[in-house]
Design a protein around this nucleic acid. Structure first.
Lengths: 196, 196
DNA sequence: TTCATAAATGAACGTTCGTTCATTTCTAGA
DNA sequence: TCTAGAAATGAACGAACGTTCATTTATGAA
């Protein structure tokens, strides 16, 4: 029973969880430190024993959000497959995270824009780029008509996926079903490779 | 020279324009009444000669935003055409409005969510529904494979369109080009009608 | 049982928020 | 030139904001 890790208690996680859920639901600027404290039944000052500012809380939530959605996508891609199946699974994993209203971590990543926190803009953009690289690779491997702009393809897919929290009721449809239908719409009927 | 309309000077428009631009750029909660006033070189109190509250300014901006994007789409649909061409033109008109960083009116409609202003949620949702009805009709007329969920098709299209402000640099690409490419991706190669 | 440490309190700070209002300034018609 | 009405000022209001800190409370190892 030697849980001997020097620092790092489990307590700070509670604050992050609450902040993630509230930021995801109402937006960063609409939530105050007092809101987060009230959610946990503590005093505003208690938060500062673990995080030095509201901005650093957002940074920590954002970081964890990217970590979670990236892990989910990586797990979904573990077994090699047909590129379209891979993209569908990655999309389903992405959706599963951002539609999870109980967590909120991944939702914050798509809801809070760099412009909402100028001092964090660089950090946020870099984390997002690292995550989106997975989809860049995935889409690069897709057999698409030669005239297709793959950057625009990626942005169209992200748009379709990231817009779902706006119109879906929580738990109404399974992420896998939505992902399957979206990918089916974006999938060209057939691509005959140019003869060599 | 009989400009004899009883009330209604042109002045309030200036306040709305500034509010729309700032709300679109930074979000409703991130902008204060003092920000709006500063943008126009006036005192915060001046705003209240024209609008009774920040919420009513948002309501007026939102209403005008819907009016503008709806007008743009209606104008684009004036001449009857092939359904896919109509949808592409409507999408280009929609994009043209929400990508107009100088105006901001239409951007507010897609950036400010009902959850940002609970007291306006009903009003906002109804206006949006009225606007989106145009696309419901347009998409209903599309020859699509029978298994296609047209609601999901509409949401996918809106997602792709409404996500563009996040990734495009202002004026980088023409709205018409983006719309053409997005519609091309969503357009099935061919639909052979079920034989009667 | 003692005690060092971590966690939380509760009160307060300076600032900014949305909003109000008596007063002043501007402007256009008579 | 006078004047009524609209527009804007400038100062202030109470409330809420992010944050600080001396003090109290809880906890786990010795």
């Amino acid at each position: 029973m030697a849980e001997a890790r020097p620092h790092s208690s489990m307590a700070p996680q509670r604050f992050l969880d609450a902040a993630a859920r509230l930021f995801a639901r109402d937006g960063f600027h609409a939530i105050s430190m007092r809101d987060i404290a009230r959610e946990l039944g503590v005093t505003p000052g208690a938060i500062y024993a673990h995080y030095p500012s509201k901005m650093r809380i957002l940074a920590a939530v954002y970081e964890e959000g990217v970590r979670r959605v990236a892990s989910a996508v990586d797990a979904a891609l573990a077994s090699a497959q047909d590129p379209w199946v891979q993209l569908e699974r990655a999309s389903a994993a992405h959706l599963g995270e951002i539609l999870d209203r109980d967590s909120g971590y991944a939702s914050v990543v798509i809801r809070v824009l760099p412009a909402d926190a100028p001092e964090l803009a660089e950090e946020m953009t870099e984390l997002r780029d690292q995550y989106e690289a997975r989809f860049r690779t995935l889409i690069a491997a897709l057999p698409l008509p030669p005239e297709t702009d793959r950057t625009l393809f990626r942005m169209t897919l992200f748009g379709a996926l990231n817009w779902t929290p706006v119109w879906t009721r929580s738990g109404q449809k399974a992420p896998e079903d939505i992902a399957r239908a979206i990918i089916a719409m974006l999938r060209p009927a057939e691509v005959t490779p140019v003869d060599a």
